[in-house]
């Protein structure tokens, strides 16, 4: 082998090495795909633990290491102003109590609560379409969104969550908020449909103020979140199914100026019961820890 060929081979080898190193350094998100947070053994152990406690895992989840940071939010005042513009233009009577402002017209009542929750009640309902109960979810969802869009009441970055139908055939379409594709489960939007009419809309939307990247930390794995949840809930007498497990943001609702919300693993059991495990601490999130305000 001559020197020229050897040099060429070394150039190719070092070029490959540099590409690999550069990939590891400058594509951290891709790079971490190779850093598995959940090993096969851990996954199997979690599955055994779930089975022993009468839980069935039907959801898939990310196995790579992930990092996240706190997100600062405040109640979304823009959407409140949009709502109010719309109804004030329509001519309403305004009454105010300590924590709630009422905007009333012949057809609707809008309640704006101090914590940012807005509720719209249609007295006789806004007609949507005949036979809504038998519509495909996709069609129904499109109709509702079109209705809201026409009235300028559709917030940005919403994600359809699920449709709920109760014993009285009352339908509720649930949406949650997102930011750059990351769910913000605290931001919620639901539309209630009775007898083919929209009868109420509830919206609690948040304004992302800032992210806090200097406090970026690795989140716990989905299996650790599942372990913590089962520890909290204990063994189930009836078989329960884990339908979803996703990473997003969540915290309680506060009557505050702004607040930080942590990343959470949202675990959905049996399709409608939702639990939020703090992805930094592994604690089950609830509102009770906050002292009375």
């Amino acid at each position: 082998m001559n020197l020229g060929r050897a040099t060429l081979i070394l150039i190719v080898a070092f070029t490959g090495l540099n590409i690999f190193l550069g990939y590891q350094l400058f594509w951290p998100d891709f790079g971490r795909l190779r850093q598995v947070a959940i090993t096969s053994d851990q996954l199997q152990a979690t599955e055994r633990m779930l089975k022993d406690n009468n839980y069935v895992l039907e959801a898939s989840f990310e196995r790579a290491k992930q990092t996240s940071f706190f997100l600062t939010v405040s109640p979304d005042r823009d959407i409140k102003n949009d709502f109010l513009d719309y109804y004030i233009k329509a001519g309403v009577r305004i009454n105010k109590t300590d924590n709630t402002t009422y905007y009333q017209s012949e057809e609707k009542t809008v309640l704006v609560h101090a914590n940012g929750l807005i509720q719209v009640f249609y007295k006789s309902g806004a007609f949507l379409i005949e036979d809504t109960l038998n519509l495909e979810i996709r069609v129904l969802k499109n109709l509702v969104e079109e209705f809201l869009n026409n009235k300028g009441l559709l917030p940005e970055e919403y994600v359809f969550d699920y449709l709920e139908i109760n014993d009285n055939n009352e339908m509720t379409i649930h949406y949650y908020q997102a930011m750059n594709g990351m769910p913000i489960y605290s931001g919620q939007f639901k539309v209630i449909i009775e007898n083919d009419h929209i009868t109420a809309i509830n919206i609690y939307w948040l304004q992302p103020v800032e992210t806090i990247p200097y406090r970026e930390m690795e989140v716990i794995s989905a299996t650790e979140a599942l372990n913590n949840l089962v520890t909290e809930l204990g063994a189930s007498t009836d078989e329960r199914t884990i339908k979803e497990i996703d990473l997003g943001y969540f915290s309680g609702e506060y009557d505050a100026e702004k607040w930080e919300i942590p990343p959470v693993w949202r675990i959905v059991l049996d399709g409608d019961q939702k639990y939020y495990i703090n992805a930094f601490t592994g604690n089950l999130e609830n509102n009770a820890v906050i002292p009375d305000q």
């Binding site: 406090r215 702004k258 930080e260 942590p262 930094f280 601490t281 604690n283 906050i290 305000q293």
Partner: peptide, 24 residues
């Protein structure tokens, strides 16, 4: 305390919580 998040109240009060305990 790096795991504690901050809630700024309208009256200037601050709440710190890690999801389990809270300090106002």
């Amino acid at each position: 305390y790096n795991l504690a998040r901050i809630i700024e109240e309208r009256d200037g009060g601050l709440i710190y919580t890690d999801g389990e305990k809270g300090l106002r």
